[in-house]
Design a protein around this nucleic acid. Structure first.
Length: 613
RNA sequence: GGCUCCGUAGCUCAGCUGGAUAGAGCAACUGACUUCUAAUCAGUAGGUCAAAGGUUCGAAUCCUUUCGGGGUCACCA
């Protein structure tokens, strides 16, 4: 903010002074100058014309002259309605020293605001997949960026650990698990349990198929089929009815759920054991991804709480009960529908739990804002949730925000578990690391390092590629994830940015200490050097934008731009063997500043920088 | 169908709170490593910014309509 802030202030002053404009009423448009013109910043003159009533050429000259007089700029040129400013180079020398000397350049001091970010939030019946990865990376980066900009941020997730799904896994394990555990079968806990969920579905399908051939199945078909309905379509349609009314396995799973809800000791203990396995698995995936949480909520302990909230709403007349006992809220005034909050049998639905969880969180933390990182298929759900919170006049209602992101597709289309096209998170991370290894082995100085260090670097590069690939896309946009592209390490990728950093590190290793003394303020930077300086000066502004808009892709694209400009600079100019001592010192300082900002911005995206690659 | 999001180069994406001739990467082709790490750089080629109207000094960007695609509209989560 350093350079732009100074410049904007001076320009405003100049406008007030020259044309007697009301300083509170104008906000001059100051852009970064396009590379084909001379200068670093450009003042757009068009909006000023009606106020000043002068031709842009004249006005530009007057403003430019005055800024030169003030010593802030060295020179200027006017092209059509654009006033291009070339800053006083001393400003840049001071600026780069400021960047290098400021620990955490780009960060903002604590602002006293508290934010809760919810992300990941898996079910315990399946391992994490590609969709979770996008969610987790988004949540994590948003957390980091907000923290960097001075917020107190609490990372949380809500785990869906109860319900019919986990009961299916439990039942399958009881029936066919032969008492095995993840440890003695050598399978990661979450995959172990997920496999039993899949096994249940398989066995259920087999059972269903057999039933369709049975007398009972045929009888139901001829009795309940619609006019002209084929058997195949019919059985597809009534799958849930079959599960609930006829299926032996379905009956058993539902009994299991009832026993769970009745707190049956044996059931609870099996449930704890299997969920425990899952959590171990999740934990290792999170660790591999480099993320962690401050607080975990479990639906098993929040779902009942939601009922109390509903009760309060009913008592105060905000909600109403229908004849069958179900409880509803009318949101038609807000342009939405009526929404059920409790089933006729008194059990809670999805949104009931969310109402309870939100309330519980506020009690725990009194956060000013609560951000939910959840895919865009749930947009309506969150509109409803937020609206109900407003109706209940919850103190946190205004601070709720749904960070909605588009689903991840494969080049072949949507991921479908039934067709086995779901990309597993653990597999994917292994693959990108392996790919990094394949590419890296004959590059740079890696081969000379100890094996452990090599592995660490492969991890940083592989995950850097994967994470950058996913974060660079705007959250709300649906993205197509091509596995081939995600392991790309050239061009607009994580490793490309890491490579810029590594080059700087290498130079610094080779720098002789003696020459490291003060900069000459009279050094005149080349245009590529000035491009880098402008980018560095814009960094805090970009970061702030990313924080305000909850959009980490802004940071990713900024880091890429900075790395790209540095690569160009690196090819164009010598550093250690620069044409003069002044140039060398300036470039070293500039490189250090770039390295610092690259490392710090990538860190916000959860991407680590290797020193060598 | 109602509501909502998206549509920019062959592909993946930037640019969107209006500013100069719409940018990157991948893929294709040409060049640059005895010189600070070539995971790099330079160059060639590639566009009716889905379409049509409107707002204005100026529109990929804002408004309206149309077309195409996704999501959602459960006593599922």
């Amino acid at each position: 903010m350093w350079v732009r802030e100074i410049l904007e202030k001076e320009i405003l002053q100049t406008l007030v002074q020259l044309y007697q404009l009301d300083g509170d009423n104008i906000s001059p448009t100051l852009n970064v100058t396009r590379t084909e013109f001379e200068g670093e910043y450009t003042l757009v003159l068009f909006p000023l014309i009606p106020k000043v009533r002068k031709k842009p050429e004249v006005m530009g000259g007057e403003i430019g002259d005055e800024l030169v007089n003030k010593g802030i700029i060295q020179s200027y040129n006017v092209v059509k309605g654009f006033l291009n400013l070339t800053l006083n180079p001393q400003l840049w020398t001071e600026f780069i020293q400021y960047v290098c000397q400021t620990e955490g350049y780009g960060s903002a001091p604590a602002n006293g605001e508290k934010v809760i970010v919810e992300f990941s939030s898996p079910n315990t019946n399946k391992p994490l997949h590609l969709g979770h990865i996008r969610n987790i990376l988004l949540g994590w980066s948003t957390y980091s960026i907000l923290k960097e900009r001075g917020y107190e941020v609490i990372r949380t997730q809500i785990i869906n650990d109860r319900g019919i799904a986990i009961c299916k896994s439990m039942l399958a394990w009881q029936l066919w698990g032969e008492g095995k555990s993840p440890a003695d079968s050598g399978v990661k806990g979450d995959h172990f349990v997920g496999d039993f969920y899949v096994l249940f579905e398989q066995k259920f399908q087999e059972e269903y198929k057999a039933w369709q051939e049975s007398d009972e199945g045929k009888a139901v078909y001829s009795k309940d089929k619609k006019e002209g309905e084929e058997a195949e379509g019919f059985y597809k349609r009534i799958k849930n009815i079959y599960f609930n009314q006829y299926s032996v396995l379905g009956r058993a799973a539902k009994d299991m759920l009832l026993r769970w809800e009745a707190n049956d000791e044996e059931t609870i203990s099996l449930w704890k054991q299997m969920n425990g396995w899952v959590y171990e698995g999740f934990e290792s995936t999170y660790e591999e991804l480099g993320v962690s949480f401050d607080k975990v909520y479990y639906e098993s302990s929040t779902y009942l709480y939601g009922k109390e909230i509903v009760q309060i709403g009913e008592d105060s007349g905000q909600f109403y009960r229908k004849e069958d006992g179900s409880v509803w809220v009318d949101l038609t005034d807000a342009g939405m529908d009526e929404k059920i909050l409790l089933r006729s049998d008194g059990t809670s639905v999805y949104i009931t739990q969310d109402l309870g969880t939100a309330h519980m969180r506020y009690k725990d933390y009194q956060a000013h804002r609560m951000i939910y990182v959840v895919a865009d298929e749930q947009n309506y759900h969150f509109d409803v949730l937020f609206q109900i919170s407003k109706i209940l006049k919850e103190p946190y209602a205004e601070g709720m925000y749904h960070l909605s992101y588009g689903m991840v597709d494969l080049p072949s289309g949507k991921m479908k578990s039934r067709e086995g096209t779901v990309v597993d998170a653990d597999d994917l991370m292994q693959e990108v690391k392996q790919e990094a290894k394949n590419i890296a082995t004959d590059k740079g100085e890696i081969g000379t390092l100890p094996v452990e260090e090599q592995e660490e670097i492969f991890g940083k590069i592989g995950l850097g590629a994967l994470k950058f690939h996913m974060i660079k896309v705007q959250p709300k946009k649906r993205m197509i994830f091509d596995p081939k592209e995600s392991v790309d390490m050239q061009g607009q990728t994580g490793p490309y940015i890491q490579n810029a950093f590594v080059r700087i590190k290498s130079i610094i290793r080779k720098m002789d200490e003696v020459s490291d003394n003060g900069l000459n303020v009279d050094y005149l930077p080349f245009s590529l050097e000035k491009e880098l300086l402008v980018l560095l000066s814009e960094y805090p502004i970009e970061l702030n934008k990313a924080a305000q808009e909850y959009d980490p892709s802004i940071v990713a694209n900024f880091a890429y731009k900075l790395a790209k400009t540095y690569h160009r600079f690196y090819n164009e100019h010598r550093i250690l063997s620069a044409e003069s001592e002044d140039a060398k010192l300036f470039r070293l300082e500039l490189s250090k500043g770039v390295a610092q900002v690259l490392e710090r911005s990538m860190k916000l995206l959860g991407i680590e920088m290797p020193d060598k690659m």
